[in-house]
């Protein structure tokens, strides 16, 4: 740092323009944190409301389950996309990215139409007792749909970074393709798997529009904040928002710590 502090007008200008965004973020945080911290008894009463606790737990759990499904179903897809050169690949890649470009209400409508009790997927699931409309799994599928591109793209990038030569060598040493994937490619992509999961999780936790269309109840935090904002006013919704900010920051720090631990393996150069 010390030898890098010489005045550079270009870098200074870049810093200044970039700081706009940072200032807005900090101000936004303060505008919630200051009033909340100045009335701790109100904050505590909101934080202990059963409705709030329930919404937070449901949001966390649904996002976690959504990520779990993504890991199970989309990790193989990410590998196939990373390792094959089929002409169908481009089409599949575009399909994967579709949730990124859709307005979330549109995504929500799509999920609803597909998974509602009369929907093409909702109906058969209903016949075996799994309901999505106003149900936990409705939240999960909405979250999965909107967060899948974040997971798939991050993990695919990780797989692409593992040289195919390593897999080739493993094959010639007697490994099947699956064993080579499991013992070589997967462990070498740990960081991308973690960051993909975290990105998808964050995206899932924050989803409102898509979730609310298929499952207004049970309420996720976003729905709760919106409901309180429209019925109870600012102070009501702000407390819930502040609690959510604290939780997300804690999770974020925890994630950083985990990736650092995973990244600090002995084989990596500093």
């Amino acid at each position: 740092m010390a030898d890098n502090t010489r005045y550079d007008p270009c870098l200074t200008a870049f810093w200044l323009s970039g700081s706009m965004v940072i200032v807005i973020t900090v101000l936004a945080l303060l505008s919630i944190a200051v009033p909340e911290l100045s009335d701790l008894s109100h904050l505590a009463s909101v934080a202990t409301e059963s409705g709030v606790i329930e919404a937070i737990l449901i949001t966390m759990a649904a996002a976690l389950v959504a990520v779990l499904f993504l890991v199970i179903f989309c990790t193989p897809l990410a590998y196939v996309l990373a390792r094959t050169t089929s002409r169908w690949k481009g089409i599949v890649e575009n399909l994967v990215d579709i949730p990124l470009v859709l307005p979330h209400t549109v995504a929500g409508l799509m999920v609803y139409l597909l998974f509602m009790s009369r929907g093409p997927l909702g109906a058969p699931f209903k016949s075996v007792g799994i309901v999505f409309e106003d149900a936990f799994f409705g939240i999960v599928v909405a979250m999965m749909f909107v967060s899948s591109p974040y997971y798939i793209n991050a993990v695919r990038e990780g797989f692409e970074k593992v040289p195919v030569h390593l897999e080739n060598v493993a094959r010639t040493l007697g490994a099947t393709r699956f064993y080579a994937f499991r013992s070589i490619t997967l462990p070498l992509s740990t960081r991308h798997l973690l960051s993909g999961s975290f990105l998808a999780w964050g995206r899932a936790v924050g989803e409102f529009a898509a979730v609310v269309m298929i499952a207004y109840f049970p309420m996720v935090v976003s729905t709760l904040i919106y409901q309180r904002f429209t019925t109870g006013g600012l102070a009501e919704s702000r407390s819930v928002a502040f609690i959510m900010i604290i939780i997300c920051i804690v999770v974020f720090i925890g994630f950083r710590w985990i990736t650092r631990a995973a990244g600090g393996q002995k084989h990596d150069r500093a």
Partner: peptide
């Protein structure tokens, strides 16, 4: 398949 050919390979980058 490669795993059953009894052929080993060493790449330039050692891999």
């Amino acid at each position: 398949p490669p795993e059953d050919r009894r052929i080993a390979i060493v790449y330039q980058d050692y891999s």
